[in-house]
Design a binder for these strands. Structure first.
Lengths: 185, 185
DNA sequence: GTCTATATATTGATAGAC
DNA sequence: GTCTATCAATATATAGAC
């Protein structure tokens, strides 16, 4: 609470005017996330690519850029909370879940109209898989202190999409570009 | 510290005879993990399946069983610490990374001799991808409160292995068995 | 090495003036 | 609504007897 107050430039006691407790503030953060996702995370990816699969990799690139700006700290705030929140905090847990479902639904809506993938491919399941790979990749990148593990995971995911019949646009192949040679590991 | 002492059945002060501080105890936990992984996690999977790919899914099944026993709480202790530990705690972070590398190296050693996958498939990268999917899947399962998201992620991963030319043994297809019908979602 | 007791620091929350 | 001051609770760590 003290850190939040300091970062916000307010006095410690003032937070309690808006949130009746530490727990309520956490719920406020998670509710904020629900509205933040669209404008701050999904819309930029939608603006950068129209193709369904390119959009997915533009989204992942957005997380990568953020992680790089933070020097491999932080990662995904919702993912961090997912593993930090006690299993007994039902309300917070439900909101983390809702944030994930929100993410999955948006990405699934991109993949649904794709005509290259067989119709037997469950778009929602595939969208969830993208989230799975993103969160697992960021976790390892944070532990490693560099983006190598995240890039590797995205590479394999791209290979999978290719095998589903939907090669991603070459522009999203950042890891195979000359610049990538400078990467650690 | 109080919780650990209580669970261990010792008095709060006694912990400080073995660990000079809270931080040192955390390092001790992570060092313990390095030796715990083989006997407690990898060897059971190795005993259950000889085939490289079946072993991978036996390993994932082991995490699933553990998660189910805990009623979808806890998940992977190393993964939890990976996102909970401060980015400034360099020693702890390095040990989390070492735990992950340990995991990846062991799984890669299973995949290396596989003759069905093209030799162009980077075994170590694939092993890391398995860890990525496992951690991302457990994270979402913990948030959801049920194993649905984990099972979905494993399903997609199995599909990927199949497309690489290495279908997993039917016995590991727990999600498509009649029992799976009882699953939520 | 373990116990009881306690010191010290940090954190969560409140009170009341402005 | 914000500020200063401060309370109460919790958590980390230490001391000294046994």
């Amino acid at each position: 609470m003290a850190t939040i107050a300091r970062e916000a430039g307010v006095n410690p006691g003032s937070l309690y005017h808006f949130f009746e407790s530490k727990d309520h503030l956490l719920l406020g953060v998670l509710e904020f996330g629900l509205g933040y996702l669209g404008p701050a995370v999904m819309e930029p990816a939608e603006a950068r690519a129209a193709d369904p699969v390119d959009r997915v990799f533009a989204l992942l690139q957005g997380y990568r850029d953020h992680m790089e700006r933070e020097h491999c700290c932080m990662g995904c705030p919702i993912g961090n909370l997912a593993l930090e929140i006690s299993d007994h905090n039902a309300k917070a847990r439900a909101l983390v879940h809702e944030n994930f479902e929100n993410w999955v639904a948006r990405v699934a809506s991109w993949l649904e109209p794709d005509t290259r993938m067989p119709t037997t491919v469950d778009r929602r399941r595939l969208a969830r898989f993208v989230l799975t790979v993103m969160e697992g990749g960021l976790m390892q990148a944070r532990a490693a202190g560099h983006l190598g593990p995240f890039d590797e995971a995205v590479d394999v995911l791209r290979d999978y999409f290719m095998r589903l019949g939907t090669p991603a646009n070459a522009k999203t192949h950042r890891h195979t570009s000359p610049r990538a040679k400078r990467r650690r590991r």
